[in-house]
């Protein structure tokens, strides 16, 4: 590869331009934190509050992290929300049937893998567009959740304390006044999923090939990538993540309801999109998704503490997503 002085200058320029174009969302995120720190002086920038936030976003985070895997290939999985509900219902029904917690959890996670397998077969072997295929399975999983639960919420004595206690527990990390500060179990799970997905996407041949499929599926195929098989596996991982997120949700609310995961799908996609604005080529990266999830969580937390009306809060969050994507696409157009 030949290199000369002018090329090095170009390189430096490209690096700077890249930094400016891709750091907008991060700057916005920091601005939001600074703003809340000023306006909520006593409680916002505290360890306790940030542990709260981390726990509040943990379910969304797990689903968004694993959603990133299919979005790397340029695909979507719209069924994650109903898969989350279904996983919660299946675990709760097994608990009601006096099965041990571990059995309920493992079966629910297995159902997540199976659902993902089904999505993957539809998308990569039958060849249905992901949007349509997972829109279909969204309805199927949701219907299955209603059918199995009879439409009712499973709660109370049916949910073992071991299961619901998990979401309330954590690792003691210190004391605030007389209260023990816990590093929440749910946050720990989200961090583990983050580490696994990051390693998978950024450090393995699997991830490299997924990005190749996302960049140009035809070229990846002709370049010796097993496109179909990898797509199938990616959808299975997303299904698994959806089920895990659903179980975390069920643990947190100590109950299972056939609709409780429905809101997670759009938030997860929004978080991935926010993260994509931080990459030069508009590729999803799981660390970008993390920032996206945190933006959503911090806005919810901070605006609630500032007593902003719930509906105004929704408008603000939507506006910030649109602003981030707009500014990043304008910056990219201007190059």
């Amino acid at each position: 590869m030949t290199t000369d002085a002018s090329i090095e200058q170009t390189a430096a320029r490209i690096q700077w331009g890249r930094l400016l174009r891709t750091s907008g969302t991060l700057i916005g995120f920091l601005a939001i934190i600074v703003f809340f720190t000023i306006n909520i002086p006593n409680t916002f920038l505290t360890v306790a509050n940030w542990l709260n936030i981390s726990q509040q976003v943990s379910m969304l985070a797990v689903i968004a992290f694993t959603m990133t895997i299919v979005m790397v290939m340029g695909d979507f999985d719209l069924s994650v929300g109903s898969m989350a509900s279904l996983a919660g219902i299946i675990a709760a029904l097994l608990f009601r049937d006096s099965q041990p917690v571990i059995v309920g959890v493992l079966v629910a996670l297995g159902v997540g893998l199976l659902g993902g397998l089904f999505n993957g077969v539809l998308v990569s072997y039958v060849g249905i567009m992901p949007f349509v295929a997972t829109l279909g399975t969204l309805t199927m999983f949701s219907g299955l959740a209603f059918l199995l639960s009879g439409g009712e919420t499973i709660f109370g004595r049916d949910i073992p304390a071991d299961f619901s206690g998990f979401a309330r527990g954590g690792i003691p990390v210190g004391m605030v006044g007389e209260r023990t500060l816990l590093f929440p179990n749910l946050t720990l799970i989200a961090l583990i999923v983050l580490a696994v997905v990051w390693a998978l996407l950024e450090q393995t041949t699997f991830g490299r090939r997924l990005y190749a499929i996302g960049g140009n599926a035809e070229a990846a195929l002709l370049g010796g990538v097993r496109v179909r098989l990898l797509r199938l596996i990616a959808f299975m991982l997303t299904g698994f993540g959806a089920a895990l997120g659903g179980l975390m949700y069920a643990s947190r609310v100590a109950s299972a309801n056939p609709t409780q995961g429905a809101g997670l799908m759009l938030d997860a996609i929004a978080a991935v999109f926010l993260g994509m604005t931080m990459s030069e080529e508009g590729e999803p990266h799981v660390l970008g998704t993390l920032i996206g999830v945190l933006i959503l969580g911090v806005l919810d937390n901070g605006l609630t503490q500032m007593r902003v009306d719930s509906y105004v809060r929704e408008i603000l969050i939507g506006a910030i997503i649109v602003a981030a994507v707009t500014s990043s696409s304008l910056a990219k157009r201007g190059r």
Binding site: S23, G24, L30, M306, R307, V308, D309, L316, I320, L330
Partner: peptide, 22 residues
């Protein structure tokens, strides 16, 4: 890029109106 920061700040200033009436 900087635009987002500006927008975030403007939106938040707007929200002060809702937040600090009481």
């Amino acid at each position: 890029m900087r635009r987002l920061a500006v927008i975030a700040i403007v939106l938040c200033i707007v929200s002060i109106g809702f937040g600090t009436v009481a």
